[in-house]
Nucleic acid binder design. Structure first.
Lengths: 206, 206, 206, 206
DNA sequence: AATGAATGAGTGTTCATTCAT
DNA sequence: CATGAATGAACACTCATTCAT
């Protein structure tokens, strides 16, 4: 008893792309849920629905998927960030544009993660998804450039950029955990804190 | 024929304490460099100069060393933080006291890490040493309490506390990488940023 | 361009079955020679000619192989025993049928063991192969039932059943060591001893 | 602070003997409870109240204690068996004397084991205590001699001796598990079974 | 290309034995 | 001799990667 499977050529390319995506999606979920180190290739393979062999047809190692994920995330976020930033003229608008773009990005990305399942207690490292990390680098670069132009060497640009990233990252993480996700409010909080400190923060009620 | 047994009580206990410390130090370094998951017991053992068996004489598992590390760090930092915070009367002095205490703590701790060796390229997760993490929790609690009293429910306490931690963490990390380590300057930067935002930041000369 | 995949279903399955058997055989030999506790997975693996990983592809633990062995042995012996016993009408024929079935079983099984190798000095525990143990339980149950019916509560059924098993076990072990293996003679010895004691034993010539 | 311990010379020899015994006792219990393979030197040491080092002062390995245990048991049982057997004149009295001696021996030995604790579910191998094994060899030899004299070469001496040992061993094990332990009854059962088979067995009631 | 069984280096951990005190 | 910490070979088991089918 033998089995014959015929694959039309067009279908073939389609399958290849689909498999690549399936692996990437599965990896994103798994890494997000249990972290890169804990995750095994079998975990990814199992979730992707493919075979172990297929995995290695597309990626040479676990690390390579990790990197691909970072590239992928960065690739999608970069144009968004640049589009937003292009419109900005001064530091405040740059800041607001970047933070807003970042928050919108992670808000939409977050929905993918949630599909993970109910047990996804979201470990600490869960948010160090490679794409997120890549995004940070991107944002850091843009921030440094902008601040360097506007504020010149008068303030500690490196510290300031780092602080902005840190705050955005932290508030971003918390934002997506709150229901409903309030991108505008979070953006406002970050921008006001950076620009004017505690006294400048939005007040609730009178 | 009679027998005389002399037990010099100091020597043995001394070695034991030294070994405990050696394991803790080795673990701190290894965890710091390559992360808890990636680190193997053999890595720790190799660096400590002891044997695998010795490791298990002192700690029952890799997790137990991790916990010991966290406990240790928290135990040493907590009193420092509390002492500093006790003197503070308003939000600013609380903030400055806490940040200063934290920066002084990690500055002195940092010297231990540097012993790591030349290959210590210091990976991103390098600073997620358990003790640091524990310290963050401590600081977060203190911050929340203070801000709740001073600023009441008018601002988003959760976001603000998280932002303070994030900034302190980030700047702390960068501070110890700069030579010479400038605790006062870093503290000033953080406090001013939180209290008054970018316009309030210290300027370098005119 | 189209693709043809031929899956010859037999070959793979064949190898898998052969490997399962190889592990079982190796385990039977190793357990038989040095006992379950002393035997290591590597011992089994080494003898089976497979790799450690392959072992765990087929069985989840050393215990699982042990159980599989017991199940296997019991599964093969149970129908033989039952077939033989079904024909019996009184105690003597029951006894003879069971002992004969058991002796025939271990006589044929014994050939598998001999393949072990020259160093197989056959330690005392050598015959406590799980399947043998399982068989004993089976036989014990059958014996108890039969004796309870025929002899009612007049004799100590528990002691008697245990004695029968013990004798059959012991004589069975010795029988397979003698060349040539004499199943009929051994069966006769056991049945006569149980039914009539020493005076009833078969005499060698005058 | 230092400590001085004075040991009088007489005491010394006493201690040595006591330690040897303590190790032997502890080992007997531990082997009886969890088996030779599972038992660790530390288990024995812990129960003996001595130190690991002391253990190796008296015995060179775990195996050596095991052997010493066998020697010890055999040494204590041999004179008992010989005394009993010396009085016997024919096969029956020999048999009865030996079985009775053996049953009395294990009955008294059993009390030591029971002290083990409540969790001592008594594993299968628990009865393969080395001394028991050694005793079997002793008994086997005596039996062979006796039977050879009385029954000459007419019956299969080897099979018969083995059967007697097997029955005595099995019934002995079961005897000590029953409460109250009935040495006379068990002896009677074995002797009657061997001498006259099932029809010769003691009947309960009418 | 797809498959999934095979591989074996590597992991955390145990434990018989040694040896400085 | 007693002590108990030190040692490291060995164990059961995992998993990234390979390769015959």
């Amino acid at each position: 008893m033998s089995q014959v499977i015929l694959l039309s050529p067009g279908k073939r390319e389609q399958t290849k792309a689909a498999n690549r995506l399936a692996i990437l999606d599965a990896a994103r979920e798994v890494f997000g849920e249990i972290g890169f180190d804990t995750a095994t290739v079998r975990d990814i393979v199992r979730r992707s629905g493919l075979s172990v062999g297929a995995f290695y047809n597309y990626y040479r190692s676990k690390e390579e998927v990790f990197d691909a994920l970072a590239d992928d995330g960065a690739r999608r976020f970069r144009p968004i960030l640049q589009a937003q930033s292009a419109k900005a003229t001064d530091f405040e608008s740059y800041l607001r544009a970047a933070v807003s773009a970042y928050f919108n990005f992670i808000a939409s990305e977050h929905e993918n993660w949630v599909a993970a399942g109910p047990e996804s207690e979201i470990l600490p490292q869960a948010r160090n998804t490679p794409e997120i990390l890549a995004v940070f680098e991107e944002v850091r670069g843009v921030f440094a450039t902008i601040m360097d132009r506007d504020l010149s060497a008068k303030v500690d640009i490196d510290f300031l950029a780092a602080s902005c990233i840190a705050v955005a990252r932290e508030i971003g993480d918390r934002m997506v955990e709150r229901k409903p996700v309030d991108v505008t409010g979070a953006t406002d909080f970050v921008v006001r804190l950076i620009l004017g400190g505690v006294p400048n923060l939005p007040r609730r009620d009178s």
